[in-house]
């Protein structure tokens, strides 16, 4: 028995080796290089590095008010996006799980995921077209005589939040839906048999059991949106840069790879810390086994 388990481990390890090696080579090694770069300084006027390990890049970032402002803005915008996406998505996931007939669920899921698979860039650009000064909304509203002057929607945080909430919708719906599907329906009946109202049953049984899905949704929306590049560029019109735009300017525009690396590492650290705190706060929901 022990021998067969060992041979199983060997077979499993052999099979996982190619994808693991690929990820080590194309993901882990570059990330470590980024980390390594961030501890060096650029020689003034050259593209090579000065000798010696230093924390100078991080010190610069810590005292730089612009970087701090951009970092705070990125986290703030992502937080708003996450809140909007998850709140808007929850009722849809709930509807899918509790109201839609089982044989219709796959169709609904398919309908929800389709927009997500179509070009992100084009979707973001279309929101720009929709929200422009002479765009779809403004031309329709002025045409109908509802407003006289076009409303400025682009280049606002609200516009960025809405575009990203649209882009990440399926990311929030799917995990919540899966968590809701796992809930044993007899628990809800039990709640009601014991005299709880529908609302209280939702509050005290359904929601806590759905929390693992909500937590997954929050993380899966929050983490990538912090590093979003396209939406601040197109919807924010370059006026509301987020950390990805700043990193790009530093890496390519100014060719300061060490400082750009330090920015990337700082951004990842900030996201990791926030995600970690969020997980700790919600730990009690994840410990419950159904």
């Amino acid at each position: 028995m022990a021998a067969s388990r060992r041979s199983e481990a060997v077979q499993g390890a052999t099979l996982i080796a190619p994808p693991l090696l690929y990820s080590l080579l194309i993901l882990a090694a570059p990330l470590l290089t980024l980390l390594f770069y961030s501890f060096f300084l650029l020689k003034t006027g050259y593209s090579d590095l000065e000798q010696g390990f230093t924390l100078e890049n991080y010190r610069q970032l810590a005292v730089d008010p612009i970087f701090r402002a951009i970092m705070v803005r990125s986290l703030w915008v992502s937080g708003l996006v996450t809140l909007a996406t998850v709140l808007l998505a929850f009722p849809v996931a709930y509807y899918l799980s509790f109201v839609v007939r089982p044989d219709r669920k796959a169709l609904w899921l398919f309908l929800i995921t389709i927009p997500f698979w179509t070009s992100y860039l084009i979707r973001v650009f279309l929101w720009k077209v929709i929200m422009e000064q002479n765009g779809v909304i403004n031309s329709t509203l002025t045409g109908l005589g509802i407003i006289d002057e076009p409303v400025t929607m682009l280049r606002t945080v609200g516009a960025i939040v809405m575009t990203l909430a649209h882009a990440y919708a399926p990311f929030a719906i799917l995990p919540i839906f899966v968590a809701l599907e796992k809930i044993d329906r007899s628990l809800l009946e039990a709640g009601r048999d014991l005299g709880e109202s529908r609302l209280m049953t939702f509050w005290r049984v359904t929601l806590p059991l759905a929390m693992p899905g909500v937590i997954a949704a929050v993380l899966i929306v929050f983490i990538p949106t912090v590093g979003d590049y396209v939406t601040p560029e197109l919807i924010g019109g370059g006026r509301i840069p987020m950390v990805a735009n700043f990193i790009q300017v530093q890496m390519l525009g100014l060719n300061n790879r060490p400082l750009g690396s330090a920015m990337s590492v700082s951004a990842m650290l900030a996201v990791a810390v926030i995600a970690g705190i969020f997980l700790l706060v919600n730990l009690r929901y994840l410990k419950v086994r159904q």
């Binding site: 570059p30 290089t33 980024l34 993380l219 983490i223 990538p224 979003d228 990805a244 690396s261 990337s264």
Partner: peptide, 14 residues
């Protein structure tokens, strides 16, 4: 889940 910009930049640096 990793922000794509991080993947792209780290690969670019390497």
């Amino acid at each position: 889940v990793l922000p794509e910009i991080i993947v792209a930049m780290s690969l670019l640096v390497v």
